[in-house]
Design a protein around this nucleic acid. Sequence first.
DNA 1: CGTAAATTTGAATGGATTCAAACGTGGTGG
DNA 2: CCACCACGTTTGAATCCATTCAAATTTACG
Lengths: 241, 241
Amino acid sequence: MATRGSVVRICRTSTLFADGRCASCVIRNTLERKRLQEEGLQSALLRIDNTSLPPKRTLYRQDAPADALYSLRQGTVKLVRETPTGEKRIVRLLKAGDLAGLEALAGADRYRHTATAVDVVDCCRIPLPVIAHMEAAGRDFSVELRKRWQSNLDEADSFITAFASGTAEQRLARLLLKLIEQHSTPGCVSLTRSDIGAALGVSMETASRLMADFRRRGLIHGGGRSLECDAAALRDLANPR
Amino acid sequence: MATRGSVVRICRTSTLFADGRCASCVIRNTLERKRLQEEGLQSALLRIDNTSLPPKRTLYRQDAPADALYSLRQGTVKLVRETPTGEKRIVRLLKAGDLAGLEALAGADRYRHTATAVDVVDCCRIPLPVIAHMEAAGRDFSVELRKRWQSNLDEADSFITAFASGTAEQRLARLLLKLIEQHSTPGCVSLTRSDIGAALGVSMETASRLMADFRRRGLIHGGGRSLECDAAALRDLANPR
DNA sequence: CGTAAATTTGAATGGATTCAAACGTGGTGG
DNA sequence: CCACCACGTTTGAATCCATTCAAATTTACG
């Protein structure tokens, strides 16, 4: 973390809550409700890094010691699981408001996945001791945490039912629909062909062929940074008749 | 729930903690630690049903109001997600110690799946108000709950990486390995061909062909209630090399 | 501007699906 | 007790979809 290319700001100023993108943060939400200035919370907050990561930078790696949570403020993060034999599979695509690395809170000593920024990601790294300290001081994150945990579960379920069922064409249509709906803007993140393959459980070549096919059929336009899709047409493909 | 064929016992006696199978229960663990006899906990416990369900009985249905948690004491429960177009997919296989219906705790108003007993299942139905009441009285389930939540997440991840990746043969080998390791006895639950297909994302026919093939190759024996497998040989198949 | 990485495309192969039919098993009622 | 039906399972054959391996092409970037 916090290596070349990433911008690190420390959460120690009163502008803490001034940023609208903090709105979805577990920690902030709880603090805001209960007032900040007490006990040693100031020093605890000093250890929360607010970081901006360029695409491809990793937040944490599979099997590394799980010592922090990551609260996503902006952008998309992929959670990749690597099998002992080397093939990688994307098991979740997290967005603003989601928490990455929840296993750390459940007592796991290692991360289950490698978390990597897909586009420019803005996130807060929250070391476990910070959570422990706050809870010892009477904070209760449980309500917020449950929602984030459920959000992770829902996402995992989607990967099973939407991205690992049906033909490759259906899977891709569903993935694109998901990407555009979690972006709100007309465009959406443009994944590499390998990432699409790793998310859908198909080969990179199949992903490429299908994307090319979709483009010829006018279902998608553009590419590069942002991809534009014909949501209505994709919906027809996503669910067989 | 609690319809024909199921045995219902109510948790109101002091034999509550006498049963070894309660050992893994979230509620019990917490109560045991902090002493039971206080406030209105007795009346709250009255509402926890300890039920024994025969195979195929459902605990709850997808889209029904999510008003209770289920703590599994024994047996295997499948969580099935049905798509609007009718195809079903098994997204998790829960075992003793797991919690089903966690979405209820995260504020979801409907269940995300249909939960069905695969073999004889012994479970406790814990209405949400019971949890709320206990938490209001100062109970803290968060540590236990996080573990169960993580367990559900791990299970979902397995379904993506182990049961939805690779050839159908690899997937089946991995599924059988999972089933035997969570049974401890030499045998394991014998799933229907449709269930195997729904878990692996392959057709029922493919599941049947592979099971027949495994049997011819001597990888599995028996069937009916309990199935015996050659774990070592299955492990070779599970991971390509 | 040149090299490395990502993408596209082709052709052959193989795996899984679909549709169909046959088989077995358990349960019900005549 | 046996005939019969329902349901799960097995198996076959044709088809289709996706993979693999390979090569060509484009793109990104120092």
